[in-house]
């Protein structure tokens, strides 16, 4: 039995060794806000925070999460970034968006004063095939407005 701390709550799960955090979140816990688009660490759609640090849940073995607090998009639903994304039209199909927002939330927490250069460096791990990038950049730079 594993105890996971997720979005301020505690969950008990009993996954086989080798199962990933993404599989646990989506499959066992129904937290389907976290998306999986590649399943092998190449796209960023599955980004969650572990103790505030962005991590790829699709290649994180759930047994290695330990004491760390998991924050998913479900825990960030009222973050001002969500509104900033909608305001700036920073999403099209929206499939990459939860991952973008989870990454961005960690970024604005760590660096409240951001430049476009920093955003482009720190968000390069979240692919968006629709190409919402210019608006994503705008949303992150204006998240407090």
């Amino acid at each position: 039995m594993l105890e996971l701390k997720i979005n301020g709550g505690t969950y008990e799960v009993d996954p086989p060794v080798g199962q990933t955090l993404a599989e646990t979140l989506r499959g066992d816990l129904g937290l389907t806000g976290t998306k999986v688009a590649c399943g092998e660490g190449h796209c960023g759609a599955c980004t969650v925070q572990l103790d505030g640090v962005p991590a790829l849940s699709c290649i994180t073995l759930v047994h290695t999460v330990g004491e760390r607090e998991v924050t998913t998009i479900e825990g960030l639903r009222d973050h001002p970034l969500v509104d900033a994304f909608v305001r700036a039209d920073a999403l099209q199909c929206g499939f990459c968006t939860p991952g973008q927002i989870v990454s961005a939330a960690a970024l604005v927490e760590a660096e409240p004063e951001l430049t476009a250069e920093r955003v482009r460096h720190a968000m390069a791990g979240n692919l968006c095939r629709c190409g919402a990038y210019p608006r994503i950049e705008e949303a992150i730079l204006s998240w407090r407005d």
Binding site: G41, P54, H121, M123
Partner: peptide
């Protein structure tokens, strides 16, 4: 390090 992989991968 800064030019390697992605931010998420670098922090993991």
């Amino acid at each position: 390090c800064a030019l390697a992989a992605s931010p998420q991968l670098r922090s993991m």
